[in-house]
Simulated scan of single mutants.
Amino acid sequence: MAGENHTDIKEFILLGFSDVPNLRELLFGIFVIIYMSILKGNGLIIIITKSDPALQTPMYFFLGNFSFLEICYTSVTLPRMLVNLWTQRGNISLSTCAIQLGFFLILGGTECFLLAVMAYDRYVAICRPLYYPLIMNYKMCVQLVIGSWISASLVQAALTYEIFSLPFCGSNKLNHVFCDAPPLVKLTCGDSLFNEFPVYANAVLFGMFPFLLIFISYIKIIKTIMKLPSATGRSKAFSTCSSHLIVVGLFFGSAIITYLLPKSRESGGREKVLSLFYTTVTPLFNPLIYSLRNKDVIMAVKKLLSKWIGLFSK
């Protein structure tokens, strides 16, 4: 490829928040609080869904797995970002960058599929309630979760290999807060459209396809709910779905904009903000959304806190 300035890049420099050096300490403090809150909030959801007998249902089984995913998903990016903020150095080796991207994509893809699985669970519960115990048995729930992990792992590992098989040109400065596919592809040589195609195809598979399944599920759910004769029944059915819909909107909204909208060389600032939104805001609000809008979760949290207080007071 004559004319291209090929370089043997050994490491990247994550620019992160280098454009606002005066806010470094403030941002470090904010992200530490956010990370601790994510660990505590989602960790609490995992504990109550495993320990409370009232929450031993498929919906809460998926919620516990989703919270575990949120912790892992955030832990791939936030700790490294905090180190970079503290040291004011964004150097990351090529291999470390590849590992971070691989885990980030695998966890993100699994999360997309799991959100679709959770929508299917709500569809069966509301549209086919008599068959719910038969369809959504424990074996099926485990298979759906494992299937989400395996599918995402195989495809996203292949995409990571594909991206890092491309030659990189010129600058090794990555205008992002972590190693993500869109900013990495911007640094590759050759036809940008050809290089970006696998990223767009992956976004369609793990973004638009699960989102379409969720959309279809909720169209059928809403139709079924509207046919219910009781206003109380309709309200209760809507309340069981509203939390999931909010999380879907937050996660898929920012992720689809990041991966599917046309990119430009100057769109790095927008991508950074949006990536922080679906990697920190959604995991942060996930426990709040599910606990504040769910009486069963609130009761389970109260019982757990009472038990802990009783143990510490002895």
Score class of each variant (00 low, 15 high):
Phe164Trp: 03
Thr110Ser: 11
Leu44Pro: 00
Ser243Thr: 13
Met226Tyr: 13
Gly269Tyr: 14
Arg128His: 14
Arg128Phe: 07
Cys241Gly: 06
Tyr200His: 13
Leu85His: 05
Arg128Trp: 05
Tyr218Cys: 01
Ile246Cys: 06
Asn294Gln: 05
Gln156Gly: 02
Lys173Gln: 13
Met1Phe: 12
Asp121Gly: 01
Leu166Asp: 00
Ser264Tyr: 11
Gly3Lys: 09
Asp121Pro: 00
Phe277Thr: 09
Leu292Gly: 01
Thr279Met: 10
Thr224Gly: 03
Thr188Met: 08
Ala54His: 06
Gly43Trp: 02
Arg265Gln: 13
Leu23Asn: 13
Asn294Gly: 06
Ile48Glu: 03
Leu284Arg: 02
Leu63Trp: 05
Gly102Pro: 01
Ala231Arg: 10
Asp296Ala: 13
Lys10Asn: 11
Ala152Gly: 07
Val20Phe: 15
Gly102Phe: 03
Gly268Trp: 14
Cys189Phe: 06
Leu23Cys: 10
Ile34Glu: 07
Phe62Val: 05
Gly233Asn: 03
Gly249Cys: 14
Trp86Gln: 12
Leu213Glu: 04
Leu23Arg: 13
Pro198Leu: 07
Met299Trp: 04
Lys173Trp: 07
Ile214Thr: 03
Ala116Asn: 07
Arg122Leu: 08
Met81Val: 10
Ile163Arg: 00
Ala98Ser: 13
Leu130Pro: 01
Leu184Cys: 04
Ala152Ile: 05
Ser171Ile: 04
Ser275Trp: 06
Ser264Gln: 11
Ala255Ser: 15
Tyr138Ala: 03
Ala157Lys: 05
Lys50Glu: 12
Glu70Arg: 00
Lys236Asn: 11
Leu274Ala: 10
Pro21Cys: 11
Asn294His: 03
Asn91Glu: 15
Asp180Trp: 00
Phe251Pro: 01
Leu115Val: 10
Thr74Met: 06
Tyr290Gly: 00
Gly269Arg: 11
Tyr259Asp: 06
Gly170Pro: 04
Pro53Met: 02
Leu107Gln: 08
Pro79Glu: 08
Ala255Arg: 07
Gly29Ile: 09
Val199Cys: 06
Ile13Met: 04
Val273Lys: 11
Tyr218Trp: 06
Asp191Thr: 05
Gly310Asn: 14
Ser306Asn: 15
Leu284Ala: 03
Ile33Ser: 09
Arg265Ala: 14
Val124His: 01
Tyr278Gln: 04
Gly3Pro: 08
Val248Pro: 01
Leu134Glu: 10
Cys72Glu: 09
Thr77Cys: 12
Ser75Cys: 07
Arg24Asn: 14
Gly310Pro: 04
Gln156Cys: 14
Ser291Tyr: 03
Glu25His: 15
Leu260His: 06
Arg24Ser: 15
Leu245Thr: 08
Phe285Glu: 01
Met136Arg: 05
Leu261Ile: 10
Ile45Gly: 00
Lys186Tyr: 02
Thr224Trp: 03
Ser267Gly: 12
Val204Met: 11
Met208Ile: 15
Ala300Gln: 00
Asn172His: 14
Ile221Val: 14
Ser75Thr: 14
Cys169Pro: 02
Leu69Cys: 04
Arg80Ala: 14
Ile146Ser: 09
Ile46Ser: 05
Leu213Met: 11
Leu284Met: 07
Ile106Thr: 09
Leu288Tyr: 10
Tyr200Gln: 12
Thr49Lys: 05
Ser267Glu: 12
Met136Trp: 00
Phe31Tyr: 15
Leu166Ser: 00
Leu250Tyr: 11
Tyr138Leu: 02
Tyr132Gln: 13
Thr224Met: 11
Gly90Asn: 05
Glu11Met: 07
Asn65Lys: 04
Val247Tyr: 06
Val273Ala: 15
Pro262Asp: 09
Ser165Val: 01
Leu82Glu: 12
Leu174Thr: 07
